Amino acid sequence: MEITIGNDFELIRKAKSIRYQVFTLEQQIPTELDFDGLDEESIHALVTKQGASIATARLNIKEDGSSILARVAVTEAYRGVGVASKVVQALMNHAQNIGIQSIEIHAHGYLKSYYERFGFEFIKEVEIVGEHQLIEMRHQIMRT
């Protein structure tokens, strides 16, 4: 398994393909809600295994040194084996390496305890997307 971090055209194309499969086809989230115009300015993590794209997430960095982790998606065949954790941790490490101060997420409500294991703290319930209640969580990055 290999994780690539970047924002070139081909990486974004592969990330969008995974997200279309997971969000649009499986979770029935309207495509226009996923493809929000922030992909080109975000940093993406893409997980591949034997050349196949299997997971992705993105980090959108704001001018104030904060960031938003979003669009965590894993293809069905690779769920439940720790791939999502690897992609989240990779972007968290990248954020720390480039000096980001905090990471915010809007995650499905049922993932609250999952993200707490990474050090995220619950802030509040936010919007409902499709049939999914989202929650806002934040992780303050400690400087060493």
Rank of each mutant, 00 (worst) to 15 (best):
T4V: 15
T4A: 02
T4Y: 01
I5K: 04
N7M: 08
N7H: 12
D8Q: 14
E10R: 14
L11N: 08
I18P: 03
R19W: 08
F23P: 00
F23Q: 01
Q27A: 12
P30R: 12
P30D: 01
F35Q: 00
S42E: 01
S42C: 06
V47L: 07
T48N: 06
K49H: 07
A52S: 15
A55P: 04
T56V: 02
L59C: 06
D64N: 12
S66T: 01
S67D: 04
L69E: 00
A70Y: 10
A70N: 05
A70S: 11
V72E: 00
V72A: 10
A73I: 06
A77V: 04
R79E: 04
G80V: 12
A84C: 14
S85Q: 07
S85K: 09
S85V: 13
K86F: 15
K86C: 13
V87F: 08
V87P: 03
L91R: 04
N93L: 05
N93Q: 02
N93C: 05
H94M: 09
A107T: 13
H108W: 08
L111E: 01
K112N: 08
S113A: 04
Y114V: 09
G119K: 13
G119A: 06
F120R: 03
I123F: 04
I128Q: 05
V129A: 03
E131L: 12
Q133G: 06
M137P: 05
M137L: 09
M142L: 15
M142N: 06
